[in-house]
C-alpha cells in the first residue's frame, strides 16, 4: 500500500567489530543491509520494521572477491549474484552454482543482490541455497565471541529462520575443491521466467569405476527450508546409475518433501514435479560427470 519507507536510524560500520557491536546493541531492532533487493521492498510493504539499518557495504574487511584457495573456492560476503554467475572459476568448477544463479532472471536483482543476502533471507524458494547444499558449502560466520564455520546444510531452521544470531554476520562462502568425475545440474519451475521457484532441484554426482561414489540432491520450495533429500541420495550410492535407479531416487525424493499449496503452485504439483526435476537433474548431472 505504501510507496515510501518508514524512518530508521542508519549506521555504516567500517569494521566487522563495529558492525557486530552495533548489532549487539540493537539486537532484533536492527537489520543488516547489503544489496537491498529483498529488504527494501519488505520495508515498503511494512513487512519489516527495523529501527536501525546497518549497511555493511563499507566494511573494509568484507569484499566481493571470488578466488581459489588451498581448500577450494572462497566467495566474499559482498559478492553480487551477477559476479558469481559470471566468474570463470565458478563456471568451470562449480557449474551447478552458475546454473542456479543464471536461472534468476533479473539482471538488476543479480547485480544488486548478494549471494549471502539471498541465503540470509532464508526463503525455502532460494535458488542459490540448493546449489550450495549440493556443493557442500560452508559459511564463515563472525559474532561477538569470534569466528565459526557452519555447513550450509545446518544453516536453515525454518521459513525466514537460520542459525545466524542477530549479532552475527556471514563473511565468506567456502566451497570445497571439486572432485574428479563430478557433474552437477540445477533446474527449476516457475510461473514466468522472472519468478521465484515453484520447485527447484540441484544435484551433484561423483562417479568412480562406473558407479556413483557420492550423490547430493537438494530441493527448494517444497518444505519449510531448502533441504537435502538423503533417502534419495542413498538410493544412488554405490549403484550403477541407469534410468531405473534414477527414477527410484527421484520417487524417493518426492516422498521426502512436504510441500504446501500457495499462490504459486499446489502441493500435489510440487510433489509430482519434485520427482520430475530430481530425475532430470540427476540425468544431466550424470551426463556431465561422464564428460
Amino acid at each position: 500500500m505504501f510507496r515510501t519507507l518508514k524512518p530508521f536510524g542508519y549506521f555504516e560500520p567500517k569494521t566487522i567489530e563495529e558492525a557486530i557491536g552495533a548489532l549487539s546493541v540493537h539486537g532484533a531492532k536492527a537489520k543488516v543491509l547489503a544489496g537491498g533487493v529483498d529488504l527494501v521492498p519488505r520495508l515498503r510493504k511494512r513487512q519489516a520494521h527495523p529501527e536501525y539499518m546497518i549497511n555493511i557495504q563499507q566494511i573494509e574487511e568484507l569484499d566481493g572477491i571470488i578466488k581459489e584457495t588451498a581448500e577450494g573456492l572462497r566467495i566474499g560476503a559482498l559478492a553480487s549474484l551477477r559476479s558469481i554467475e559470471l566468474s570463470p572459476l565458478v563456471k568451470k568448477n562449480y557449474f551447478v552454482l552458475h546454473e542456479a544463479i543464471h536461472s534468476i532472471a533479473s539482471i538488476q536483482v543479480k547485480t544488486q543482490g548478494t549471494a549471502v543476502g539471498n541465503l540470509c533471507v532464508a526463503t525455502p524458494a532460494s535458488d542459490v541455497a540448493p546449489a550450495l547444499l549440493v556443493l557442500d558449502a560452508k559459511f564463515r560466520i563472525v559474532g561477538p565471541s569470534g569466528e565459526k564455520t557452519v555447513p550450509a546444510e545446518n544453516f536453515y531452521l525454518g521459513v525466514g529462520q537460520t542459525v545466524l544470531q542477530p549479532n552475527e554476520i556471514i563473511t565468506e562462502i567456502l566451497l570445497p575443491k571439486p572432485q574428479a568425475k563430478t557433474g552437477g545440474a540445477f533446474l527449476k519451475l516457475v510461473r514466468t521466467a522472472a519468478d521465484i521457484a515453484k520447485v527447484n532441484a540441484a544435484a551433484t554426482l561423483t562417479m568412480a569405476d562406473g558407479a556413483c561414489k557420492e550423490a547430493r540432491i537438494a530441493v527448494g520450495s517444497v518444505a519449510t527450508t531448502v533441504l537435502r533429500v538423503k533417502k534419495a541420495e542413498g538410493v544412488l550410492k554405490e549403484q550403477k546409475l541407469d534410468l531405473k535407479v534414477i527414477e527410484t531416487a527421484a520417487r524417493a525424493a518426492a516422498e521426502e518433501v512436504k510441500p504446501i499449496s500457495d499462490l504459486r503452485s499446489t502441493a500435489e504439483y510440487r510433489k509430482e514435479t519434485t520427482r520430475v526435476l530430481v530425475k532430470r537433474a540427476l540425468e544431466k548431472a550424470l551426463e556431465r560427470a561422464k564428460a
Partner: peptide
C-alpha cells in the same frame, strides 16, 4: 543496472 526503488 540497478533498481533505484530498492536502493537507499
Amino acid at each position: 543496472p540497478e533498481l533505484s526503488c530498492c536502493t537507499l
